[in-house]
């Protein structure tokens, strides 16, 4: 396999310093109770976008 990292160092540098989620955030992303709450939040947001998007 050839090494390609040197072809696009800019993007690799950006990824290397991108902020990582904390352990708390990673846990919250998998926590069923937190995510049930987020599911409601996502639904509300989506419904708002849908309501604002239909024909006039």
């Amino acid at each position: 396999m050839n090494e390609v990292l040197e072809f696009d160092p800019g993007i690799m540098e950006r990824i290397a310093v991108a902020p990582l989620p904390t352990k708390k955030t990673l846990k919250a992303r998998k926590n069923v109770f937190v995510q049930l709450w987020r599911l409601i939040g996502i639904n509300i947001r989506m419904l708002k976008v849908i309501a604002a998007s239909h024909h006039r």
Partner: peptide
């Protein structure tokens, strides 16, 4: 700005 959002998590998969 209110209509543009993003989040990552298990809830997204359920959705």
């Amino acid at each position: 700005e209110k209509g543009t959002s993003g989040e990552i998590g298990l809830a997204g998969h359920w959705m």
